[in-house]
Every structure is written in C-alpha cells, then in structure tokens.
C-alpha cells in the first residue's frame, strides 16, 4: 500500500495541485486569486507532462557518443517542447486576463466579485 503511494506520489501531487487550482478559480471571491488559481491549475498540468518525460538514469536529450543512440539513455524531449508551447499559451492567457482585470478595476474600483456585482446592480 505504502509502496503504491510512494511509487506514484507525483500523480497525487498533480491531482492535489489541480484541485487547489480549481478551488481557487471557483471558491475565491477576489478576481486576482481566481487568476492565480488558474495558473496553479495549468502548472499542475505542465508538471504532469514533464514527469511523464523522465526515465530513471537517463540524461538530457543531446546525442552523446559515449551513450550511443539507445533511446533509454535519454529522457523524452517531446513533452518538454509541448509544455514550452503550453507555457506560452498560459502566459498569453494571463496577459489577457490581467488586461481585463485592469479595465474592471478602473470601472468598479474593486476586484472583489461581490462588491463588483453590487456596483453593477446599482449602476
């Protein structure tokens, strides 16, 4: 039982991060905290991809004459490349979200969801 958990602890960590992120996005009232929740959520997915690339005892995926061309000696570079792209997407999403938050703050002088909805109703 213990071994099963230790051998897969990375999955539990990923799941934990996913849940923390979802909680932040759904339960927090502050919009910045929602955005932070989104970032945690996405990071969990990035870590999930990265952990899938590792192999015990393997090295960086640069061809080395001493190791030859045996694939087991090198970690899988593809998930890293995918996640590099996904990070760019995530940065762009965060950028758009922050721009929206600046507009919202200028309009309602607050980033608290409850206060904003209150002020929306009054206007």
């Amino acid at each position: 039982m213990m071994e099963a958990i230790l051998g897969r602890y990375i999955y539990f960590m990923t799941a934990l991060l996913l849940v923390i992120g979802l909680y932040g996005m759904i339960a927090k009232r502050n919009l910045i905290k929602k955005l932070i929740g989104m970032n945690i959520f996405q990071t969990a997915i990035f870590l999930f991809f990265i952990q899938g690339a590792t192999k015990p005892g393997a090295t960086v995926p640069v061809l080395d004459a001493r190791l030859g061309t045996e694939a087991a000696h090198y970690i899988n570079p593809l998930p890293h490349v995918l996640i590099l792209t996904a990070i760019v997407v995530s940065v762009a999403t965060t950028g758009v979200a922050l721009a929206l938050l600046i507009t919202i703050y200028r309009r309602y002088r607050s980033l608290d969801e409850g206060i904003i909805l209150e002020r929306m109703r009054r206007s």
Binding site: L35, M38, F41, I45, F48, F49, P79, V96, A97, I104
Partner: peptide, 25 residues
Amino acid sequence: RAPMAAFRYLILGSIGGSFYLLGVG
C-alpha cells in the same frame, strides 16, 4: 459590463482548454 463577463468566460474557457490538454497528456 463586458470585461467582467469576458473574465468569467476566460476562467471557464481556460478550464475547458486545460482539461483538454490534460486529456491529450
């Protein structure tokens, strides 16, 4: 009220996109 609606869409849309990405993983 558009920015607030767009922000909500962004949060939910990102969850959707991220779930898809997780499935791809």
